[in-house]
Nucleic acid binder design. Structure first.
Lengths: 77, 77
DNA sequence: CACCATTTGTTCGTATGTATG
DNA sequence: GCATACATACGAACAAATGGT
């Protein structure tokens, strides 16, 4: 059926909400345990998506605190 | 085009960097999620490569902590 | 100070599906 | 059909930082 992987759906969702301005720099994202419910997914694809979004500069992760939108996320042209 | 499997490329890369001295005994390797991005690969070949490198004595894996270069890795003659 | 709940960071074992040869 | 390699995913355990009680 060729559906998009959950992992990619999460990445696209977060990037889209940053691009649209719904998520502002400094805003906190839902925790992983909340994302498990929201996206109906397990740790693996969620953490993989967050690792990618972190490596590409969209978000910053802070152990013990949470995940936040980066101050200067890529522009997504 | 007969490219090397990703799995083998990772093994060769890590072994080469240990042999060259770029990676020293006790040094921590990148995490699996970082390797996913660096090598543009998924869990499976990365975990397989790490399993081989562990079994052959190049590295030591510690759950919850990370992957480290072994104290006395094979000499690679 | 100790303790604990929350949260992220990391590895582990396993399973399923897909593509290739 | 079979074997290999890979991508994706689930669930779990262990580690470490944070913040509150």
């Amino acid at each position: 059926v060729a559906e998009k992987p959950i992992q990619q759906r999460i990445i696209d969702d977060v990037r889209g909400r940053i691009a649209s301005g719904e998520l502002q720099p400094g805003d906190q994202l839902p925790s992983i345990s909340q994302m498990r419910i929201v996206y109906d997914a397990s740790d693996t694809p969620i953490k993989a998506a967050l690792a990618w979004l972190d490596a590409t500069g969209y978000i910053r992760r802070h152990q013990g605190k949470g995940v936040y939108v980066a101050e200067n996320p890529p522009t997504d042209r």
